[in-house]
């Protein structure tokens, strides 16, 4: 279970997060929405140790995450992707996945050459549908394929909690559909938090949604509850929430 209590983040006097409380039970697929600048990415940054909170607590699976280094948090089973995907372009798809899968091995044991494909890597390849591209260098992948590779790398780490920052941004309709199915399947055996704007995508794949606004949690509930909420509509400038949310990049 992921538990944030009264988390505050201040950048040069600006409150990016202003007392966020958030609880995500094990096995849930949670969507996080909110206008640009609401603090969604900052929230993920705080959980993963990239940004230090000014106050509040972040706990995951019984561990206090505050003050831990990024790689230590990963070792506790928390994985993330970034809004702009970062894969290692000079390495092949397999090598990217293998690297992600290997972090629990002691450093000296990495001094040997990779032979074949480990079970974890094969599984991540299959789940993301990247088998055909396995030996290609990641630099030649399309935008959508890169996002899948990132998700695959995350899976190869065998995390308990996955935090995905706008994984379908910039994808075609087909790609979104595939990604949605992928996320749903992943959520079968992981806890997943997805930052996403697209209302249609939310309707199809979300169960619980948390709306963030100006660094605070505005509403939490089902997609229908949330989009019917007057406060949410107000945040999106009085327009119908479904339109406003749906059109954001």
């Amino acid at each position: 279970m992921l538990e944030l209590r009264d988390v505050q983040v201040v950048f040069d006097g600006f409150r990016a997060l202003d007392g966020v409380d958030l609880t995500v039970p094990d096995g849930e697929l949670r969507f996080l929405i909110g206008p640009n600048g609401a603090g969604k990415t900052t929230l993920i940054d705080v959980i993963t140790g990239l940004t230090r909170p000014a106050a509040g607590s972040v706990r995951f699976a019984g561990h206090d995450l505050a003050g831990r280094k990024e790689h230590q948090i990963v070792r506790l089973g928390v994985g993330r992707t970034f809004q702009t995907s970062v894969v290692f372009e000079e390495l092949t798809v397999i090598e990217n996945l293998d690297l992600a899968a290997g972090f629990r091995k002691p450093l000296w044991s990495l001094a040997r050459r990779r032979r074949g494909v480990s079970e974890t890597v094969a599984e991540a390849l299959a789940r993301t549908g990247l088998e055909e591209l396995a030996e290609r260098s990641a630099g030649v992948l399309s935008h959508g394929q890169r996002q899948w590779l990132e998700i695959g790398m995350l899976l190869a780490q065998r995390p308990k909690l996955l935090l995905l920052d706008e994984p379908v941004a910039g994808m075609s309709k087909d790609e979104r559909e595939r990604t949605g199915e992928l996320l749903t399947r992943i959520a079968d055996d992981h806890t997943v938090v997805v930052v996403e704007h697209d209302m249609e995508f939310l309707r199809r794949h979300a169960s619980t949604v948390t709306v963030l606004h100006e660094g605070r949690v505005l509403v939490e509930g089902s997609v229908d509850q949330v989009s019917a909420d007057p406060r949410v509509q107000e945040v999106y400038l009085g327009r119908k929430a479904s339109d406003a949310v749906g059109n954001r990049p």
Binding site: H71, G79, V86, F88, E90, L91, L99, L110
Partner: peptide
């Protein structure tokens, strides 16, 4: 041998995206 090993891949990854490597669980 080292460059061709997994460690070598990790080293290249650190060169090209040190911050990303942290989130793969390596230091």
């Amino acid at each position: 041998q080292l460059v061709n090993s997994r460690y070598g891949r990790l080293l290249v990854a650190v060169r090209d995206g040190e911050d990303r490597v942290r989130f793969l669980g390596y230091d």
